[in-house]
Write a protein that binds this DNA or RNA. Structure first.
Length: 146
DNA sequence: GCCAACGTTGGC
DNA sequence: GCCAACGTTGGC
């Protein structure tokens, strides 16, 4: 799960302990949250638009997807006038902090690791903000970071 | 700050 | 239903 640290970082999640992953306005990413994510599932927290960009920690899905309240809030930058109360368009899961890694695992390292070949985030133009990670890749990265 | 890649919108 | 125009993402 990607986030720009300037807007919400792993430290923010550590402080908050849990947060609603609101503001996703991409159907593919929404569908991942709505259809694939189950409480207890783990995910990597990725800092995008950072220096350097990369994986910074581990989180866990806390509760299943619910309606994204920010879509109805006119003052929110995530407001979507096309999302109606009786037919909500956007959903988000609640996530929980698990751990902040001792150091960042930079995108550069993800790209150069032969064991992570084909990982979605290393592909050119891969801007989806929520991406699936294979079990193999997940375990390998955990091993690197422990 | 640039710009390639990608997603969405809306006219037709 | 096509596709040009536009807006956004995000690495560099």
């Amino acid at each position: 799960m990607k986030s720009e640290p300037d807007s919400y970082s792993i430290d923010d999640l550590k402080k908050d302990k849990t947060t609603l992953w609101e503001g996703v306005r991409n159907y593919q990413a929404r569908n991942f949250m709505k259809n694939e994510m189950q409480p207890g599932d783990e995910f990597f927290f990725y800092h995008s638009n950072a220096k350097p960009p990369g994986i910074v920690g581990l989180g866990q899905i806390h509760t299943q997807a619910e309606v994204d309240p920010t879509a109805f809030q006119k003052e929110s930058k995530y407001y979507d006038k096309k999302s109606k109360q009786d037919a909500p368009r956007w959903f988000c899961v609640r996530v929980k902090f698990k751990e902040k890694f001792r150091k960042i695992l930079p995108l550069e390292d993800l790209k150069s690791d032969p064991k992570l070949l084909g990982m979605m985030v290393t592909q050119k133009g891969s801007r989806l903000s929520i991406q699936p990670v294979t079990e193999k890749h997940f375990q390998h990265i955990l091993k690197i970071m422990k």
